[in-house]
């Protein structure tokens, strides 16, 4: 796929929009489009507004309100009471820290390991390169779920149940991310690396000083994808952890389900706490993420 520079993209977009805004375009059409987009925006946002409003009202008011417009308003206002309860009941500080440790290490170490692997496949000469590349492509198809049962067994054998490492180590190296890095590195013009090589730089220096800065969009994309995936993991942690000590946030929801009177206010407060970090990260980095998807191999 052709590499488009940022400016060329901009010019292209301007042309595209001039084309779209040609005089024949009726304003009625435009209003219809707006109406549809606003309806869709409502569809995507109402559960989140509802979650936020519900987290700020007394537990017994959540369902009582939910068939009136008050469902979207924090009335009667209960302050942060639910948050206090949720934090106590689910031991949020502990669980939150667990999630940060687990996702942070998976993403951080994964970026290094997978990009190094992808770079070697894309640029370094060694015997068996083609076989290795084919192996990586084949490994992408193996779903983690198919590995979960034997991994659980192996983990139990070495006494790794209820530990951090069993939640981190299996997810660092990832064939899909390796492949994304590989395709991205292939799209970088080789001349810069050649120039550095002539200046006497070794592969490691070329990688850290020339390639990594150029590959920022790929790193951003893989980081966000990896974070979305690892922060939301549910199947694996619910299989390999029992106590709260090493459990991540998503599994913590279970605490509220086992206790008979359902405190919807607490539950909604907990889901707010679980959702907000990713929401903030996304809103701050959304431009980079969208560009990263556009420039990396994700789109095929």
């Amino acid at each position: 796929m052709a590499v488009t520079t940022a400016t060329a993209r901009k010019v292209e977009r301007r042309r595209r929009h001039e084309r779209a805004a040609r005089p024949g375009e009726s304003t009625t059409k435009r209003w219809i489009l707006y109406a549809i987009m606003i309806a869709l925006a409502a569809f995507f946002l109402f559960p989140l507004v509802y979650m936020l409003a519900s987290s700020l009202k007394p537990d017994n008011q959540v369902l009582a309100n939910s068939q009136s417009p008050e469902a979207f308003l924090p009335t009667p206002f209960a302050g942060l009471e639910n948050y206090g309860d949720a934090i106590d009941r689910a031991q949020v500080p502990r669980v939150f820290l667990n999630s940060v440790i687990i996702s942070g290490l998976i993403v951080g170490l994964g970026l290094i390991v997978n990009s190094l692997f992808g770079y070697a496949l894309a640029r370094l000469q060694f015997t068996g390169r083609n076989i290795l590349r084919a192996t990586i492509v084949a490994l992408i198809i193996i779903p983690f779920e198919a590995l979960a049962v034997p991994l659980l067994f192996m983990g139990a054998e070495v006494g790794w149940l209820d530990t951090y490492q069993i939640q981190i180590l299996p997810f660092i190296a990832n064939p899909l991310y390796i492949f994304l890095f590989y395709t991205f590195f292939l799209s970088i013009p080789v001349s810069l690396e050649e120039a550095a090589r002539i200046d006497g730089a070794g592969p490691l220096q070329i990688f850290t000083r020339v390639v990594m800065p150029l590959a920022k969009p790929a790193y951003a994309t893989v980081a966000i994808l990896g974070f979305l995936f690892s922060w939301g993991q549910f199947l694996w942690p619910s299989m390999v952890t029992r106590g709260i000590e090493v459990r991540p946030l998503p599994v913590g929801v279970g605490v509220f389900k086992t206790t008979p009177p359902v405190s919807w206010g607490d539950i909604m407060a907990y889901t707010v706490l679980m959702t907000v970090p990713l929401l903030v990260i996304f809103v701050v980095f959304q431009r980079q993420f969208v560009q990263g998807v556009a420039s990396s191999g994700v789109k095929g």
């Binding site: 995507f44 946002l45 559960p47 989140l48 979650m51 979305l228 922060w231 939301g232 549910f234 946030l249 998503p250 599994v251 929801v253 889901t271 679980m274 959702t275 990713l278 929401l279 990260i281 996304f282």
Partner: peptide, 9 residues
């Protein structure tokens, strides 16, 4: 936005 909401939530 909903993509950033983890499935458990």
């Amino acid at each position: 936005t909903p993509v950033t909401v983890v499935m458990a939530a």
